[in-house]
């Protein structure tokens, strides 16, 4: 006689255990100071350290002509599976002033380092699946003919439109004499066959305020600050290529890497043409938990 197992109840128990212990692990996970880049939209080729989990919260305040201003926010869980593979889950939402606060969807992203060693230009591959609705306003990337007026309708209207998209980026990045320059060409495809391929870009340059570390532990040393600028925008799509009806932004950025494992990022983006939001004020807070993977493996009975 074969014993019948009730999979849902097992899964429920398992989930409960995982969630409970995971929350405890957060407290026990050892802490490690990160050297995070200041970019919010652009990616360089550096991946998460293996076994480390980075939890990030970002917020974007956007001005909106012809509608209400908004505050879009998202949380990222970024995990370094190996030294050449980072995986990430995003959960996003937004508040449109004088309207409502809604959950706008999730994203699942993977980044792969393509070359073993460092070169003058280093490529990495970024693949993301997005399951969002049209009310998503995090503007984590701008592509195709995304323009400010797309975001003007009320949430009740926007949230009815669901988007399932596959997004790919090539992350080219170079670090020389303390400067990092990153260029990300973007290609996005809505999974509906009738939708065109959309194109976009993100470019960033940054540098730490000091290249040499001071001998003492300090919070406000220049070496803990990285400043830079990023620019991003759309490049049309396969049905209508070109820069017409596209939006573009220029954003000075700064990151403050605290020795106590926290990183704070600030960015003020300015729209470069009439199709862009005039202002995108962004901030982010992130914290790194090293040794997270090892504890999860223990949880599943494996040997780290």
């Amino acid at each position: 006689m074969v014993a019948r197992i009730n999979p849902p109840s097992i899964l429920k128990k398992l989930r409960g255990i995982i969630l409970l212990i995971s929350s405890l692990l957060f407290w026990r996970a050892s802490l490690l100071s990160a050297q995070e880049s200041p970019y919010i939209v652009t990616y360089d080729h550096y991946l998460e350290e293996p076994g480390s989990l980075e939890v990030e919260y970002f917020s974007t305040f956007g001005s909106q002509r012809g509608g209400n201003d908004f505050d879009a926010f998202w949380t990222e869980f970024e995990y370094g599976v190996t030294a050449w593979w980072t995986t990430e889950v995003y959960l996003a939402g937004q508040t449109t002033f004088n309207d409502s606060t809604i959950f706008t969807g999730s994203r699942f992203e993977n980044r792969f380092r393509l070359l073993q060693r460092e070169h003058f230009v280093n490529p990495a591959l970024y693949i993301e699946f997005e399951n969002t609705n049209a009310a998503d306003k995090i503007l984590k990337e701008v592509e195709g003919h995304d323009v400010e007026s797309d975001y003007a309708p009320p949430n009740a209207v926007l949230r009815k439109e669901h988007d399932r998209e596959l997004e790919m980026k090539l992350l080219f990045s170079s670090t020389f004499k303390g400067w990092n320059v990153a260029v990300n060409p973007i290609v996005t495809k809505n999974l509906l066959p009738s939708e065109p391929w959309e194109f976009g870009y993100a470019i960033g340059a940054s540098r730490p305020l000091a290249l040499k570390a001071s001998p003492n532990r300090c919070n406000v040393c220049p070496e803990n600050f990285i400043a830079g600028v990023e620019m991003y925008g759309g490049l049309g799509d396969t049905q209508s290529a070109g820069l017409h009806d596209t939006s573009h932004y220029l954003a000075p950025v700064v990151a403050w890497n605290l020795p106590s494992v926290w990183t704070i990022r600030l960015s003020s983006g300015f729209g470069l043409n009439d199709n862009s939001h005039r202002l995108l004020l962004r901030w982010g807070l992130s914290r790194e938990f090293s040794g997270f993977g090892e504890m999860v493996v223990r949880l599943f009975g494996g040997r780290p």
Binding site: S37, E118, A213
Partner: peptide, 23 residues
């Protein structure tokens, strides 16, 4: 330190400026 041993789990550390790597 600059190149790591990526396939063996050591990440690249070129994100640290050159003087810091020498330190």
């Amino acid at each position: 330190l600059t190149n790591g041993v990526v396939l063996r789990g050591m990440p690249v550390w070129s994100k640290l400026p050159e003087p810091e790597r020498w330190q």
